[in-house]
Every structure is written in C-alpha cells, then in structure tokens.
Design a protein around this nucleic acid. Structure first.
Length: 395
DNA sequence: CATCCACCGGAAATAGGGGGGC
DNA sequence: GCCCCCCTATTTCCGGTGGATG
C-alpha cells in the first residue's frame, strides 16, 4: 500500500503561500493605515526617552486593521528598543483568550519571563511579581489588550494596571485598549473611562477600492503569478465593502475561493469561485451563530427543523403545509422534556421566535386567511438537515 | 351577527445571580 | 463575610385581534 500521506499531502498548484491569507498573518505593509501607524507610534514615542506615554483607546469595526496596526507598531517598538538598548517592552494580550484580570496578569508575567509559572498564585501575588520584575529592570511597558470588552471586570484590570504607576519609580505601565464594541466605552465608569481614553483612535472601515488594493497586495504573496483573476479580486473587494468594509472578510473570501479553485483543479481563481466562497462563508457564519445560541433557542430550532423534515404542519388555505407558532410551541415543549430541559412559557417562547426572526434564521409572518386572529406561521430560512446536525452536536 | 378561538404582545410580578457597600 | 440592591431573564396576568364558526 502506498504511503497514505502521498494522497493527503498534495501540492498546491495555485497557492504559493496560503498562510498569507490567514487572519493571523501580519503583512509587512499595511496600506491605508499609514496615518494610524504614525499617530500611534508618535503617541508611544515618549517611552523611548524615559517618559510614560498616555493610555490609548482604539476603536473600530472588525477587519479595520486595529490588531494588525497595533502588533506592527509594538513589534517595531520592540525592535527599535532592542537595537538601541533601551529598557522598553511592548506586550500584546488578547482579551478573548485571557478573559479575566487574573488571566491577563498571568499572561503578562509569562510574556516578561517565560520561565515563571505562577499558576495557582493569587491575583495580588502575580501582580506583585509583575511590578517587581518591571522595577528591578527599570522597564517601561506598553500593554495592548485586544478585544478588551471580552475581559470580565475590565475596569478593575485597567484601574489596577494604571495605578501601578504610583508604585513604580524607574519604570512605567501604559495601556492600549482595543475594542470593536461601540458600547464598551459607555459601559465603563467615568473614572476608568478617563483613565483609558486619554487618547482615542478610531479606525474607519475600508472602502471597496482600498479593499481591492489590499487584496491585490496579499494575493501577490499568497498565489502564484497569474493564479487570480482581477475580476475575482474586485468581486471579493466589493462584497467585503458591503460587509461593513471588513478586510478580514475580504481575505477569507479570497482564501476560500482559492481552496475551491484548487479543489476543482481550475487554472485560475475566477469570479465564480468567489461567489461560491461567499455562499460557504455566509453559511458558516449562520451555523456558527446557531451553534453559539443559548440552549432554549437551539431547542426551538431543533423542534422546528424536525417538524419540517417530518413534513408535519397545518395545511393552509392554499394547501401548503405550514407550521403555526402554537403547533411549534407544543412540539418544542415535548422536545425540551426529552432533553431534560424545562420549557419556557409560551409568552417567552414568542420572544424567542421574534429574536430568531431578527437574526434571520427563521421568518415569522401573520398567517392571515385560514387562521384565527394574529396567528403566525414560522418558516425556517436554513437547511433543516444541517441545522439538525449543528444543534444536536451542541445538546 | 354574536361568540369563540388561537394566538399576540404590553405590563407587572418574580426569581436568580453578581457586584458593591459595610 | 454578610446583606442589600440592581439587573436580567422569565413567568403571570390580561386585554386585544381578527378570522372561524354556527
């Protein structure tokens, strides 16, 4: 038998460096973010002459380059400081991965000194070690906390880190908070807000033209010469522009389109591959959302898709089989019991239906003729089989 | 036409969980 | 550590809607 890996590991014929399209890849150049880079580095520059930079709050929608710009500036800062032998460090922490004060502090200590393992120590012990380390080396740090809105009790963390400047004489701590949640800032108490938001940077979404340039540049990295048509790139750019100017989405489209083209052995990535990729990506987003829905919502969807697949429903005056909310409710209660979950009241069930409707997963409409009063019928907007798979996996 | 039915959705009551003050 | 308060999720209550029914 031939080596199994001969089969599985196949050569790409279109991709040169597929990773260049991955969301984690930081390109050497960040087009259309020169101004943001300049501002950010300018605000951080005092740290190189022994002064504490102001704290900075960065806000912008997903895929506007916040993370890439911050990482780029921090890595340049580190590089420069190392070269000039200045005790300065830029640290990057993702708040989604380290979602509590304690976890962030642990991560910081580990970044400063990978040999330290403070698992199991109290928060204040970790904090003390952190300060000790800074002060002993006279190190000034900039701490960037990405997706800071995901950190529980973020204001405590901000307050504590900022206050550490009172206890440090030779060193300092500056913060960069990054968020794409517009309500995060408002949710902070006034004191924390003024602490964190000494300087504010807003990243605007890219437009279609800018996205096209970004994609072209990245495609040069990722694909072999002539392996992508201009059409494909323009379409991906246009679609992403509609998708609130999200560059990450644009890159994902191109990546998936590339995969599809590879798969079918096409000569080039064409428009149709991007169209196909878009369907896939869109679906993925929907099913991802479904998988992370609260349990009760998923049970409602489970009940609905099961009914649909069984073809059970009430026939309307036009002869179609439709599902009324009342019918669905009684079936949902049954399903919930089966899964050992106590069903919610019919009133709240109706709220669920409305929510799922605003998400676009289902549609509810007043039935009109053939049904009493304001009875509504429920329709499923996604494939019931796939939904069933996704939901059952999570129950 | 009067009444019924099946459901809609607002408002108030309640429960449960977490944070903050002492 | 304890208790209270607040916020959110949910239930309870109930008047409303509009076609069906006889």
């Amino acid at each position: 038998m031939a080596n199994v890996f001969e089969e599985v590991v196949k050569e790409y014929h279109l991709f040169k460096n597929r990773d260049a399209l991955s969301p984690h890849y930081i390109p050497p150049e960040l087009p259309f973010r020169e101004e943001e880079i300049r501002l950010l580095s300018q605000k951080l520059a005092p740290i190189l002459s022994g002064k504490k930079p102001e704290n900075i709050f960065i806000y912008g929608k997903t895929g506007t380059g916040k993370t890439a710009v911050t990482k780029k500036v921090l890595s340049d800062l580190n590089e420069y400081a190392k070269k000039k032998n200045i005790p300065v460090l830029g640290l990057y922490v993702n708040g989604r991965l380290h979602d509590s004060e304690h976890k962030v502090l642990l991560k910081l200590v580990r970044l400063l000194d990978p040999t330290q393992d403070l698992l199991g120590y109290s928060t204040s012990a970790v904090y003390d070690r952190f300060l000790e380390f800074l002060e002993s080396g006279g190190i000034r740090v900039v701490i960037a906390i990405d997706e800071i809105d995901m950190v529980k009790r973020a204001s405590d963390l901000i307050y504590r880190l900022n206050r550490s400047n009172d206890e440090l004489s030779r060193s300092s701590v500056s913060l960069i908070g990054i968020s794409n949640n517009p309500t995060f800032k408002d949710r902070l108490d006034a004191r924390t807000r003024s602490t964190l938001c000494e300087v504010e940077l807003v990243f605007k979404p890219y437009n279609a033209e800018q996205l096209r340039v970004i994609l072209e540049e990245r495609a040069k990295e990722a694909f072999k010469e002539g392996a992508v048509s201009d059409d494909a790139i323009s379409l991906a750019a246009a679609l992403a522009a509609k998708h609130s100017g999200d560059a990450r989405y644009a890159l994902l489209l191109l990546l998936r389109a590339g995969d599809i083209a590879e798969e079918e052995g096409a000569e080039r990535v064409e428009r149709k591959h991007v169209e196909e990729a878009r369907r896939l990506v869109e679906e993925d987003i929907v099913y991802e959302m479904i998988a992370t829905l609260p349990e009760q919502h998923r049970l409602v969807l489970l009940a609905l898709s099961t009914l649909r697949l069984k073809g059970k429903g009430v026939s309307s005056f036009s002869g179609e089989n439709v599902i009324t909310s009342g019918l669905l409710y009684s079936y949902y209660t049954k399903i919930a019991e089966e899964y050992g979950v106590s069903p919610v009241s019919d009133r709240w069930f109706r709220e669920y239906l409305n929510e799922l409707d605003t998400y676009g997963i289902i549609s509810v409409k007043v039935a009109g003729k053939g049904f009493r009063g304001n009875t509504r019928i429920v329709e499923l907007n996604v494939d019931p089989r796939r939904l069933l798979q996704v939901v059952k996996k999570t129950l």
